[in-house]
Design a protein around this nucleic acid. Structure first.
Length: 279
DNA sequence: ACGCCCGCCTGTAAGC
DNA sequence: TGCTTACAGGCGGGCG
């Protein structure tokens, strides 16, 4: 579900909400969410008694820093939610798999119907060998020091279709199915263009579109779709879905040229585009 | 060696 | 109305 704007929205809220809080206890009711830990003690014990220092993000992974050697990694998968509950009495939603209780009161709950998301504890120095998918992430699509030249260098490192390259977490970290389509529309480029067909001005446009789309989506606190799966830490939906130009708009007129938005399967993912605006 | 497809899950909506 | 099917924000493994 969540891509970079959604994960970053949650990360910022989480950082404000739980930094300085001390973990009193941890309840795991859905062991699939902690599947990297064969023994639940190795998940729970390093957390209990620790104080949260802050929350970082690497691509779609959140990194909860603690006052010890360990970090708590959270990935939301397709349907994961993190919800702050002010009191233990707040009704527990269905599919709540992990609950973290703080000594100051309140809870952090991990809810995930499809269970593709996960939480695990590790230390930063062993991430390289233990969590290669995290270690091999490309540059963060929202990180400030990215220039259009190194963006282009990374993107065209290997020959691939544009959408595949944009969604490749080892190239650029954070972009998924919604934002790749929105970014490609914004740049006027088709999803199936080859990276090596790009002229420098195309790379520059794609770079600008990536930054602009993601920053605007972040400003509006992400995209919540009809199923309202994505909500922020306080259960509120985002607002960027109202700005979508192509995603889930098949059959509707393009907001720019009035041509009908087309839907097509591409490497297993539904892809939306304007056949007139994107070349 | 690389690209593609499947499977992992549950919920929902469309189709018959 | 009810059963069946397809599909959904991600990602790793295995296959060709």
């Amino acid at each position: 579900m969540p891509e970079l704007p959604e994960v970053e929205t949650i990360r910022r809220d989480l950082d404000k909400e739980i930094a300085g809080k001390k973990i009193k206890s941890v309840e795991v009711t859905g062991a699939r969410s902690t599947r990297r830990h064969e023994d639940l003690k190795t998940f729970i014990d390093p957390l209990v008694g620790r104080t949260v220092k802050g929350v970082d993000r690497r691509g779609k992974y959140m990194v909860v820093k603690l006052d010890g050697p360990d970090v708590l990694i959270i990935h939301l998968g397709m349907s994961g939610q993190l919800l702050r509950a002010p009191s233990v009495r707040t009704e527990m939603p269905k599919h709540t798999h992990v609950v973290i209780n703080f000594t100051q009161g309140g809870q952090l709950r991990f809810i995930d119907p499809r269970t593709f998301g996960e939480m695990f504890v590790t230390t930063l120095d062993v991430i390289e060998e233990q969590v290669p998918e995290l270690a091999h992430l490309g540059i963060d699509a929202l990180s400030a020091p990215v220039t259009w030249k190194n963006f282009g260098g990374l993107l065209t490192l290997r020959s691939a279709k544009l959408k595949t390259a944009l969604m490749d977490q080892r190239v650029l970290a954070g972009i998924g199915n919604i934002y790749s389509d929105e970014i490609l529309f914004h740049s006027g480029l088709r999803f199936d263009r080859s990276t090596d067909s790009l002229k420098p001005e195309d790379v520059r446009r794609l770079y600008r579109s990536t930054v602009e789309v993601l920053q605007e989506a972040l400003r509006l606190r992400g995209s919540s779709l009809a199923d309202a799966q994505y909500v922020d830490l306080f259960g509120k939906p985002g607002g960027y879905q109202a700005e979508h130009q192509v995603y889930a708009r098949d059959g509707l007129p393009c907001r720019r040229c009035r041509q009908t938005i087309t839907k097509e399967k591409f490497t297993g993912r539904t892809t939306y585009f304007c056949p007139a605006c994107q070349i």
